[in-house]
Design a protein around this nucleic acid. Structure first.
Length: 541
RNA sequence: GGCCUGUUGGUGAAGCGGUUAACACAUUGCCCUCUCAAGGCAACAUUCAUGGGUUCGAAUCCCAUACAGGUCACCA
């Protein structure tokens, strides 16, 4: 039996050989210095903020260098898979304005972009390793492996399948293997490691710099018993065939670099550049940890949609985490598209940043202060249609009123920044559409005094011609009722007055809106109109 | 436990042998002011995890230690 025949027996379903695929997928022709980047998310139905973080880096580096970015779905673990997982990922990256050039559904010259559809490719490469005696079939069961691990732990030795622990299986003859296979024993394919733990290998990581490791000496599984490879084998094969120039991935992969380097070497492929990003962290009980899908709602991209945080703001926040000089650039270039910013590996931090909700909120508020009232209205409405139907129908039937309200203090160079997420909109503007149910009185709480102020206001001092006229009337009323119309005078001698114009305005404000914190009162009165204001005040009286 | 990474204020960070240790968020105070939001001004690290060393000079270079994180699967 030749080694070719032997390999074919081990891969009975493998249609093509390695050379076929190397010929099929041509090398990319790109300008000097162009990056080919990718993201490799697993379709679990849950789009992780980290995926978005990798995406913004991958797409930006590719587009600014005249390169290519693509999405490759890494679904080699069917246990975790979920229906529509890849659609969710593709939708998220497109929603967040991270345009990949190739991927599933999008297409491209290196299709398929889904690992489960590339099984024949991986097998062809694994078969090549069998032929060249750099891999071997392994029949060890999970139970045996667990026993071995215990034994190693007891002996306080390095844990894993390597060296003498793997010697028995490495030594099987082709005939022995054939017999086991014919008996129906299931097997994996393992790398026959040539490495020595005493030797060093290193990478020049684009973010972390030069890192040295002991060589890999583990006989890792490269094809699982179901014929599908684990990540460790799919990664070198795919990134080679698909022409990736730099692998951007989370630092949790750092420790498997020696394994990947050895696989590249066994395959006779030039290893590619790595850029290991530090992971976004969360603090809990004074301890930092990687942001967790299970514990932290903000790990799920859907959270931002649900809260109504603008996608633009999320992207800006991710950019500030990705490149330390982005924030200054962003502040210095208002109104300029973030596409203009030049991203570099040098400005990526080697340490993990704590997720800062406050900062995100600030970015969101600032961003929303720059959009037009109409735009903001549409954004809030679209959000409400999904998450707050009753509010959506109110907005729908009060379009003009809502827009007028949102337009208050929105102009000039100091626009109002009171809404950071669409989910806050209901509370900040509901009083425009119906009479308040609760009244947040401040300094003046006496019912008779409140009634007197509101009644006098409506009877004698109502004015909605313009802001100055309106305020003059309020001041006149203060003089009549014994309140200070001039704040400076009041501050000097507060004891001479019952209160100030501020207190009186507050009564009017709360009387109409229920809230003590609103945008400019005159504008609100003007939008509501005399009839509505009168109705509300009479109801109160 | 082995291997790897990281450590500058509450947070994100700039810094690359000589700086008053940028900037931004948050916080506090003042100003503006009919409230709120915004805006303006100011305060907030004598010290860069700790201890040694090199140097005229160290956050920056070297060595130890501590702490934190990651990883050691037929998961990614």
């Amino acid at each position: 039996m030749t080694r070719e025949e032997y390999a074919s027996m081990l891969f009975p379903n493998c249609k093509h050989d390695r050379a076929y695929y190397e010929k099929k997928y041509k090398r990319r022709e790109l300008p000097e210095g162009a990056f080919v980047t990718r993201i490799g998310p697993s379709p679990t139905g849950f789009v992780h903020i980290g995926t978005l973080f990798q995406s913004v880096i991958a797409t930006k580096l590719a587009s600014q260098s005249g390169g290519v970015s693509y999405v490759r779905i890494e679904d080699t673990d069917q246990k975790r898979e979920i229906e529509n997982g890849k659609e969710a990922i593709l939708k998220a990256v497109s929603d967040y304005d991270m345009p990949f050039n190739e991927g599933p559904i999008i297409g491209g010259d290196y299709a398929p972009y889904v690992q489960s559809e590339r099984v024949d490719i991986y097998q062809a490469f694994a078969k090549d390793l069998i032929i060249r005696d750099l891999a071997y079939p392994s029949f060890i069961t999970e139970e045996e492996l667990a026993k071995l691990t215990d034994e190693q732990a007891r002996l306080k030795q390095r844990i894993g399948y390597f060296g003498k622990w793997a010697a028995k299986e490495r030594a099987y003859t082709m005939e022995e293997v054939m017999e086991k296979v014919n008996n129906g024993e299931s097997y994996t394919i393992r790398l026959k490691s040539q490495g020595d733990f005493e030797n060093k290998v290193f990478i020049d990581d684009a973010i972390k710099g030069r890192i040295e490791f002991p060589e890999n000496d583990m006989d890792s599984v490269i094809i699982k018993s179901n014929g599908i490879p684990p990540y460790h084998f799919a990664h070198p094969v795919d990134d080679y065939l698909m022409g990736t120039t730099v692998v951007i991935r989370g630092e949790e992969w750092l420790s498997s670099v020696p394994l990947h380097l050895e696989i590249f070497k066994a395959l006779g492929i030039e290893p590619i550049k790595y850029a290991h990003t530090s992971s976004i962290q969360k603090e809990e009980d004074g301890k930092r940890r990687k942001i967790s899908k299970r514990k932290d709602p903000e790990a799920n991209v859907e959270y931002y949609t649900k809260m109504g945080i603008p996608k633009e703001a999320v992207k800006v926040y991710l950019l500030t985490l990705a490149n330390s000089n982005f924030e200054e650039w962003y502040l210095a270039n208002p109104g300029v598209s973030t596409d203009e910013f030049k991203m570099t590996f040098e400005k990526m931090s080697g340490s993990g940043a704590l997720f800062d909700t406050e900062k995100l909120n600030n970015i969101a508020k600032t961003f929303l202060s720059t959009v037009s009232a109409e735009d903001l209205y549409e954004r809030i409405l679209n959000w409400a249609r999904v998450y707050d139907e009753s509010f959506a129908s109110i907005l729908d039937s009060n379009r003009d009123k809502a827009i007028s309200f949102l337009d208050i203090e929105r102009h000039g160079n100091k626009p109002r920044k009171d809404i950071g997420m669409y989910s806050e909109a209901r509370d900040t503007m509901m009083y425009m559409f119906e009479s308040p149910e609760k009244y947040d009185w401040q300094k003046i709480t006496d019912k008779n005094e409140i009634a007197s102020i509101l009644k006098t206001y409506m009877d004698k001092y109502y004015d909605d011609t313009d802001n100055d006229a309106w305020f003059s009337k309020v001041k006149e009323m203060c003089d009549e009722l014994g309140y200070a119309s001039d704040m400076k005078a009041y501050k000097k001698n507060p004891e001479e007055f019952k209160g100030s114009v501020a207190d009186v305005s507050t009564v009017i404000r709360v009387g109409i809106t229920g809230s003590s914190r609103t945008p400019n009162l005159f504008d609100i009165i003007k939008i509501l109109g005399r009839d509505e204001v009168e109705k509300r005040i009479n109801k109160l009286l």
